[in-house]
Amino acid sequence: MREFAARFIRSPEGVAGLVLTTCLLAMALSAPYLFPRDPLSIVGRPLLAPFADPAFPLGTDRLGRDVLAGLMHGARTSLLVGISAAVVAILAGAIVGTLAGFSSGWFDEALMRVVDAFQIVPGFLLALAFVSVMGASLPLIVLAIALGAWTGPARLARAEVLSIRERDYVAAAWVIGMHPLEIAFKEVLPNALPPVLALVSVIVAGAVLTEAALSFLGLGDPNIVTWGSMIAEGRNVLRTAPFLSIVPGLGLVAMVLGVYLLGEGLVEALARRRIRQ
């Protein structure tokens, strides 16, 4: 473990990603304590420029809402949606992939055609359609994003399972009379999981962007502040108050970059260990 940490620290992108995500995580976790009021509440003069008033370091928007409070609470929403969507997608993908890979035959075929069907529709369109039909609330948005993201993990998990199920210890499990489902989820899945987990960073980054895009189009939950809705709101005054779009936009960049770099660093550190083994 210590060796792994040392290897991780040696990769510059991993460290940069760790620093960025830690900062954003700290922002998200501290938001309700630093800004206990609803971040959508109107607190000051509208369209105050950043750094002009110490009470509102990042200024205020068209209605006089604190941009800094929005940024902090928005980090919370973004991270929450990103991580929840990734968890749902990985979970669903791993289960479907394991079932397909382990069962083989017509059941495998059927499951994989379902995966194909989902994969040919662009994930964003899928989310868009789902949200416009089902309505916009946070759990539904998470589900909508996961709907377009679970196919990657499913394919990867199936491929891993196909190779693992031929191993000796799986044969041994059959011999001692374990239930097939027990073998699939107790013996095979845990060993198939690590490569699938490498997808987490990609899915989280994608989910954060999809959520922002949905909010930007007005399909997010209007009762919570998100970076996408802040950018959409700021777009109306882009020429007079560009900071309203730039500030949450930078947040988005930092979040996606941070998560992605962290993922890269982790994968690289893990890969080196494998090579050495």
Partner: peptide, 12 residues
Amino acid sequence: RQFGDYLRQALA
């Protein structure tokens, strides 16, 4: 729409 955002805060 903006008035909707405002009304939510005013009623809060």
